[in-house]
């Protein structure tokens, strides 16, 4: 469309913008709402900013708050994801634990500055919290048994690390790919970068740390209560965050993506509970055959 017009006819572009608005369903066009004026200015070609391309680059860089110069193998590239202060991390953790209707976690808390500090250390803390409190609860369950010998079960740290880190990295990767694919098919106004999705997933795991510590107490009803509360909180944060990104899509696709997000979350929580925390009844059952054999003999 722009190729047919003379680039110096500025007034044509108001019309072109209107045409774009009307033609929204066309599959080949993908324009985000915030870079539309920028494109118009670039197409017009004689705005005062364009006299010095470096200055305008600087300005856009400062305005967007992002440095896009460092390559991914350099140290500076990763320093970008650790550019946070203590109070930011506190706000983000609290924001991931208390979902507020209509508040999008990415828009309210991340503000185009996703960090990796929170996701990494929340995952690491959760790994050790799972292994240590699971071991501790086993110890409490078997405390009274005379023939029980305590073992630290250190191998569970490895299993917990595999489970948590693969959830926190591969699920965002799959979700990012899926959103990218849907964005090509149907234009969504909201699109998230991979780091933002990783960040949301990492912070959404923060609620599980107190829940896992609570699972030490060997009451099944308390464990299930804390699982349900943690699932509701983290699940609603995830759903509310990704809702705007798929809102324009077919209802079937929305249902599929949202249920996959929630289902994987449930699977992680229930799987961890079932694997790392043995039920008191389950701990009793292996004792019975031995006791029976003892009485027979």
């Amino acid at each position: 469309m722009a190729s047919t017009n003379d680039p110096f006819q500025f007034q044509e572009f108001e019309e072109a913008g209107n045409l774009l608005e009307a033609n929204r369903d066309a599959t080949t066009i993908s324009i985000e709402d915030d870079d539309l004026p920028d494109r118009q200015r670039k197409a017009a070609g004689f705005t005062p900013d364009d006299e010095d391309p470096l200055a305008s680059d600087d300005k856009t860089e400062l305005l967007s708050g992002q440095k896009n110069s460092a390559p991914f193998w350099s140290f500076e590239y990763y320093q970008r994801f650790f550019d946070i202060e203590t109070h930011h991390v506190k706000e983000r953790i609290i924001g991931s634990m208390l979902p507020w209707p209509g508040k999008n976690f990415i828009h309210v808390h991340l503000r185009r500055n996703p960090d990796l500090y929170g996701p990494f250390w929340i995952c690491t803390t959760l790994v050790f919290a799972l292994a240590i409190s699971g071991n501790f609860s086993n110890f409490l369950v078997k405390l009274g048994k005379p023939n029980h010998k305590y073992s630290p079960q250190f191998g569970k740290v490895t299993i917990a690390a595999t489970a948590i880190f693969s959830y926190a990295w591969f699920v965002p990767l799959a979700l990012w790919g899926c959103l990218l694919w849907r964005n090509n098919k149907i234009m969504n106004l909201v699109s998230y970068s991979f780091m933002e999705i990783v960040c949301v997933y990492g912070y959404s795991l923060a609620i599980y740390i107190p829940a896992v510590v609570l699972w030490i107490i060997p009451f099944e009803w308390l464990r299930w209560c804390s699982i349900v509360v943690a699932l509701c909180l983290s699940g609603s944060v995830l759903v509310m965050t990704f809702w705007p990104a798929v809102r324009e899509d077919h209802p079937k696709v929305i249902a599929a993506i949202m249920s996959a997000i929630v289902l994987l979350n449930v699977l992680l929580a229930v799987g961890c509970k079932a694997y790392f925390f043995s039920k008191p009844e389950a701990a009793l059952t292996p004792e019975h055959p031995a006791a029976l054999e003892l009485t027979k003999a």
């Binding site: 202060e85 203590t86 803390t125 010998k149 630290p152």
Partner: peptide, 26 residues
């Protein structure tokens, strides 16, 4: 100054895990 807690927390976790290994040795 705004990031001291962010640096101290991983150190805390590191020694906590080593302390757990020492304590649970049987």
């Amino acid at each position: 100054p705004g990031r001291k807690a962010l640096v101290v927390y991983p150190v805390f976790l590191f020694y906590f895990v080593i302390g757990w290994m020492v304590l649970t040795f049987s």
